[in-house]
């Protein structure tokens, strides 16, 4: 069974981040003997005054493999962990989808895309989850986090959204790497030219800039790089990645 799990709104100003909690849940799932699991992706949702996010309105998602019939165990593991560690004053939501390749998830993906552009409600989320038989649960506070949690699963399924948590954290800044070297890292599956969106040869040298990230692009962990006037390829800083906008990805 392939599953997708996403959480949102688990933090407050002084707590650990939602991404860390997602990794802790993943660790518990792996310790139970399930897996493998993917890296965690961070999905930026709509920034608006009327949305009660803590500071950046993003949700954290991963997918994994587990034996058939273990969905309820996964939900229970995640629920117990969320109920234990979610921060005071937060509004956590949990979404878990058991993927069925006979189903169409267009509406769910569209929910995720819309959650990046406009304000959606808990009722919208519950209706979408019900239609697709997806587990969606509130874990305290207003439970508003179910909106982002469902959106995160939709966006991960969509496959062209989200930064990879922890990506390139251990790479040396301002050092040159070949594309082949970078593709040996678990968080880099492909290195693409920003302009052409074409893959670069394994022997191409890339200078790794500060605060760069891989992103989900057509279901792969992709590092986008740009060629400068000296024909040197450099990775994009995170601030620039976040400004690429949704039209870049599709």
């Amino acid at each position: 069974m392939k599953f997708y799990l996403c959480i949102d709104d688990t933090d407050n100003l002084d707590s650990i981040g939602t991404g860390t909690i997602a990794e802790q849940i993943q660790e518990k799932i792996i310790n139970r003997g399930y897996g493998p699991c993917s890296l965690v992706s961070r999905h930026q949702l709509f920034i608006h005054e009327d949305i009660p996010y803590t500071s950046h309105n993003s949700s954290m998602c991963f997918c994994g493999e587990a034996p058939d019939g273990t969905l309820n165990t996964i939900i229970e593991l995640a629920t117990n962990h969320l109920d234990t560690v979610a921060a005071v004053g937060s509004d956590p939501g949990l979404c878990v989808l058991a993927y069925d390749d006979r189903c169409h998830y267009d509406e769910l993906m569209e929910f995720g895309i819309q959650a990046k552009k406009k304000i959606l409600t808990k009722d919208d989320a519950m209706a979408c989850a019900r239609d697709h038989q997806i587990h969606l649960s509130e874990h305290g506070g207003t439970g508003q986090g179910i909106i982002g949690a469902l959106a995160g699963v939709g966006l991960r399924l969509f496959g062209c959204d989200g930064e990879i948590k922890g990506a390139l954290k251990n790479a040396v800044i301002n050092q040159n790497y070949t594309v082949a070297d970078l593709k040996n890292l678990p968080e880099v599956e492909q290195v693409l030219d920003l302009t052409s969106k074409e893959p670069l040869a394994d022997t191409t040298l890339i200078r790794l800039g500060n605060r760069s990230k891989t992103v989900l692009y057509h279901h792969q962990y992709v590092l986008f790089v740009r060629r400068d006037e000296n024909q040197q390829y450099t990775s994009l800083p995170k601030a620039e990645i976040r400004q690429l906008g949704e039209h870049f990805y599709v």
Binding site: L13, D14, I16, G17, G19, T20, R42, I47, H48, E49, Y53, T54, S55, H56, N57, S58, K165, G166, K169, N210, R211, P237, K238, A239, R242
Partner: peptide
Amino acid sequence: PDVEEEWLAEESVSCYNCRYRRLVG
């Protein structure tokens, strides 16, 4: 400092990397 995942600025100490900043339009 916010969790590093949410840092935006290259400089570690920056309002863009602070736990007490809120992204707005």
